[in-house]
Amino acid sequence: MSKIVYEKSRGLSETQLSYCPGCTHGIIHKLIAESLVELDLLERTIVISPVGCSVMAYDFFNCDGIQASHGRAPAVATGLKRTNPDKIVFTYQGDGDLAAIGTAEIVHAAHRGDNITVIFVNNAIYGMTGGQMAPTTLIDMKTSTSPLGRVEALTGKPLLVSELLSQIPSTTYIERVASHDVPHLNKAKRAVKKAFQYQAQGKGFSMVEILGTCPIGWNMTPTDAMGFVKDTMMPYFPLGVYKDEGGEA
């Protein structure tokens, strides 16, 4: 007699992920897929993929998918959800997509309190385009457009998205989690699951910010990148529930 402790989620498609070795996008995809299957929501879910590393996320989940233009995924989600209120709609966005070019769209989807879920992966860099500085790049962090390190005097301090969105009156649930080890992944999955549950219950706008890695963009091994999340990112981007007005999930 044996029991399956872990196997690939049926919420994921057969398509091989396009991510670099050791990138946490794959791990985060698993959390989403598992949550949707466990909540029995997969078959009425539509994923909206961004521009960036996860541009092909529509290919990786076993549900309908829409590819959005850069930063506009929350607006696409609004249009889809308003015409299909009984469906589960989530955007999957990186920090370039959500925190730079798409700031108007994310802020106003939150402002309207749209009943959608946003999975925001913050890895402090533009991965797809080759490791440029993002609004979330840490001070002194070297990127291909901050070759000497991010300089606060010229580029300000890294943008704190969870803190920002939690100030918007109509948001329901905002939490920042991390993906660098299994205990944190368990917490991250609980957050993702709660966000989808809230949406299914019609409770409004939810966002889970997940600190992730970019081993190639950071010029680190995948295992060193996991350490960087813990030692360097987490002190600046504190984990925790920034807002939860959803009550019992």
Binding site: V5, E7, L17, G26, K30, L185
Partner: peptide, 22 residues
């Protein structure tokens, strides 16, 4: 020990873990 940690951390869903419960 079939703890499943390897499978959970794997970004590419390579690993299936089965625990003997007999």
């Amino acid at each position: 020990t079939a703890c499943g940690i390897c499978a959970r951390i794997c970004p590419d869903s390579v690993i299936k873990v089965e625990r003997d419960i007999s």
